[in-house]
Amino acid sequence: MEHHQHPDAPVLNKSVPVRHPGRWISAIIILAFVAVFLQSLFTNPNFRWDIVGTYILDVKVVQGVGWTLLLTVASMVLAIVLAILLAFMRQSDNPIFRWSSWVWVWFFRGTPVYTQLVFWGLIAVLYPKISAGVPFGPEFFSLDTAAIVNATVAAILGLGLNESAYLAEIFRAGLKSVDRGQQEAAEALGMSKGKIMWRIILPQAMRVIVPPTGNETIGMLKTTSLVLAVPFTLDLTFATNALANRTYLPVPLLIVAAIWYLVITSILMVGQHFIEAYYGKGVDNLAPAAVNPAAAKAAGPGADAQRSMKTDFPEESAR
């Protein structure tokens, strides 16, 4: 590897690299635009950075951040659980399962999320009472819909059910991306259907599922600003809009909202990075972390052997 240190090593070529004047010119143009923009940030008084500073940690704003996070996490959890179920149903041998999964995706993907949010807000008007009983027969108990489906629940249901349709397709694509031979190898070992799915197929599918799901989560963070349709009035966008209307200063409060959305998105991206590294085990991430002490002892030569292995079989690691 370190040729130049060897006495009889070949003299390495020192060629003149190709020049790229175009790159320099375009880089200078971009830098000029960035400089002008940065200058305007500092010199344009209409940004009102003082107001941004006043409201960035305002109680209403911070509470709004909390509610937005709650809505995002709760609706994504609901969506992921439903999506796994829908993706499994779509692969099922039972035609009723396949069909109902398809119809669910068709409906919730085919209508606007705004419409769905308004609908969940009005559910108590449509069905004033939720009751359990035999259809056309006796009734066991009945509850006021408005008491169960309050604005928070309506917002989570609206966002989560809509999202489940998109995630179901992402999960389906992920499950389909796993080589058929994996299923066969697990079957040949006598593994049960459930074990094959949870231990063999899903962990490999996750490599394909996580990046677009991260995308969806970040999308969801911002879609929560639509919950006004329910109406739900505690989220970040509503809080900053209310403050903007009160102070007649929309620009600095939009900046406050944008900064918070960017902060949360950045944190989510860090989280996604670690989840991707976890599910990339053996493919993107070859760190021998999963070996327990006894096995490591048996494995003998550690990192060195591994590096040489990788160079020995480039076609294997390329696969």
Partner: peptide, 9 residues
Amino acid sequence: DRAGHYPSQ
């Protein structure tokens, strides 16, 4: 001596 290796290695 290859117990800790992933198949791709």
